[in-house]
Amino acid sequence: MNPLRALSLTRRVQLALLVGALVAGMVLPHVVSSFILRLVTLALVSALFAMSVDLMAGYAGLVTIGQAGILGTAMYGVGYVASKTDGGIALQITVGFVAGMTAAVIFGLMAMRSSGVYFILITIAQGMIIWGLASLLVNITGAENGLPGIRRPVNIESGFRYYYATLVVVLICSLALFVVVRSPFGHALKGLRGSETRVRMLGHNSAFLKFYMFLVSGFFATVAGILLVYLNEFVNPTDVILGASALPVLMAILGGIGTLIGPFIGAFVIVFLRNWVSLRVDRWQTLMGLTFILVVLFAREGLVGAVSAWWHKRIDGRDGGVSSVLHEPEKREAVLSESG
């Protein structure tokens, strides 16, 4: 018997898409130019970063616009060792990791009591503090001029090899996130979205839960930061500006928030809008803004939500979503009372 027969049409299509994407990912470097390959690498890193934001924004309903603070601290950790000392790759990565996680701990302690719009605002402040430090501490960060002289590990130095390294790390992290959102911890996080009282009734302390959320999410942001700094071989304060923190949120919402595949799609769309379409269209920022507006108006649940809705309406009305994680529409009233 063909075991595929046991699966519904939706599941089979999902499987086919997943396998297709993996195969495409493997053969891609042999097909496209090294410029496109760099963009794909950047999109993969951005996707990981956006997933780390989505864990908070999508699953727990807590939108952070300061995550570049964690990503950037990790980048600066690596960059400082590479640029200002003669430490090797192992030391660079260790320092970058510790720096990123330290930022995550501090962010968590600061924000674990907030929720709703205030959570958004405090995270904006966090990101801006890191930006302030980056622009201020000339001796450590090089301020506006940034930290040059960062080099990739020798064995993955070429763009070709670095792509595969990134692909592997991002896939492993995606898998880990897949496990996390299905764990009891993941379910508790989803509880935060509805109401915090419910979480408390279930026996969780919401402040601690948010703190752990920062640690887990911060871990993935840190990994993304380390990947990004070796991709660019450069770091400066523009990596931690407000816009850098807003982009992953936009990627997640655009693709479909509260799913893991959504941030991937959003990341690819935005990275290519910013770096590829912009080569052809002068007014690419208008185009990007209009994309956001159109998605909100006509595909409220993001691109994944729209495709999923179309699929179930036209093709297969039986089974769960196209996305790997069920998407719950946001509850309007809950949000209203939360932010009030």
Binding site: A57, L250, Q285, L290, V296, V335
Partner: peptide, 29 residues
């Protein structure tokens, strides 16, 4: 624009940032 998504924080974030991009870019032009 906003009336269609009243009370939905995340779409509002995306929409108003999108609006900022459009306004900023057209102003530059």
């Amino acid at each position: 624009l906003l009336r269609r998504i009243r009370g939905l924080v995340k779409p509002e974030v995306l929409l108003t940032i999108g609006l900022t991009f459009v306004i900023g870019d057209l102003s530059l032009a």
